[in-house]
């Protein structure tokens, strides 16, 4: 059934006014799909991931609906949301290295967490052990304190904990950012493995690192300044990007087998707009080489080919 998000708006309350971190995001993730979500810092990609599971005190749900497996998630209501967390939608947080209580043995923390969710931990013991072995951790980590593990081990423990109740949707938020390249590869392969083993049904992988997504994701969504710019199957988006921002983003990635001696890697000139007072119309138009008068009106996010949607007047 998958995930359907319609016109989601989530703002941050600040003294200067509302920061419109998510301003009308519409996207669907099919069952079994791993969707990569990429964009610059501050484009709202982590906010998107977080608002599907836990809207905290600084965030405000302004509008839009989230439907997962045919059930509308009460994302604005923390208490009502509690029941859906972990069982239906789960997260591997950005701060996986510090996500474990420093003064509890890991096994005991897991037991207490499961009991508090009404799950008998004895029933999941074997499964927990199996999954730890799957990510290359000995059962002995359950008797250790988080400080006794390396960063990579903590990350894997958190991956196992987050998926232990076989959630329908898993949000992986910048989980490779703090890792070295070889560990990044292992982690991204584990994500795919989790999906293939049926631990999770669909997944949203949030990162600023497009090259990771290339290995992991079935589809790629590019976010810019609180809105989706483009979404397409990974291959297609890399080969035939339609949105000017996507094109510039992909052209700024180093390519395998190409030597950059004569030409320098091009960046995207300019900086993303402030989300406190975003410009009207297309938010990329101040940096866009193609922009003209029509871009002063907001482009709709429309499907131009099967599974390929884009928000740009120039692409259609």
């Amino acid at each position: 059934m998958g995930l359907e998000v319609t016109d989601l708006r989530v703002y941050y309350r600040t003294l200067a006014g509302d920061v419109k971190a998510l301003d009308g995001v519409t996207v669907a993730v099919a069952e079994g799909e791993i969707m990569g979500l990429a964009g610059e810092s501050g484009c709202g990609k982590s906010t998107f991931g977080n608002s599907l599971i836990r809207i905290d005190g600084r965030m405000r749900h302004v509008g839009g609906r989230v439907i997962l497996d045919g059930i509308e998630l009460p994302i604005a209501d923390g208490d009502a949301m509690r029941e859906f967390r972990y069982k239906l939608v789960s997260i591997i947080p950005q701060y996986a290295m510090s996500a474990l209580n420093p003064t509890r043995r890991i096994g005991r923390m897991i037991d207490e967490l499961l009991e508090s969710r009404g799950v008998r931990h004895q029933e999941l013991r074997t499964e927990l052990r199996r999954r730890l072995l799957l990510v290359g951790l000995p059962e002995a980590v359950l008797g250790r304190y988080p400080i006794e593990l390396s960063g990579g081990m903590k990350q894997r423990v958190v991956m196992v904990i987050s998926t232990l109740l076989d959630p329908s949707l898993l949000i992986a938020d910048e989980i490779t950012s703090a890792l070295d390249v070889s560990t990044q590869k292992a982690v991204s392969q584990t994500l795919v493995q989790f999906r293939d083993e049926g631990f999770v049904r669909s997944m949203i992988v949030v990162t600023h690192d497009v090259s990771i997504l290339y290995q992991v994701s079935d589809t790629l969504a590019i976010m810019y300044a609180g809105r989706l710019a483009e979404k397409a199957p990974t291959e297609e988006l890399m080969e035939r990007p339609l949105h000017p921002y996507t094109r510039l983003l992909i052209s700024s990635l180093p390519e395998m087998g190409v030597r950059f001696e004569e030409e320098r890697l091009a960046g995207i000139p300019g900086a993303p707009p402030s989300l406190l007072n975003p410009p009207t119309g297309c938010r990329f138009r101040t940096r866009c080489p193609l922009a003209d008068a029509v871009c002063e009106e907001q482009p709709p996010f429309v499907e131009v080919a099967p599974g390929h949607a884009v928000a740009c007047w120039k692409a259609t």
Binding site: R82, S90, P93, R117
Partner: peptide
């Protein structure tokens, strides 16, 4: 925050 996100 992690415990809260997992619905504890």
């Amino acid at each position: 925050r992690y415990l809260d996100a997992l619905g504890a």
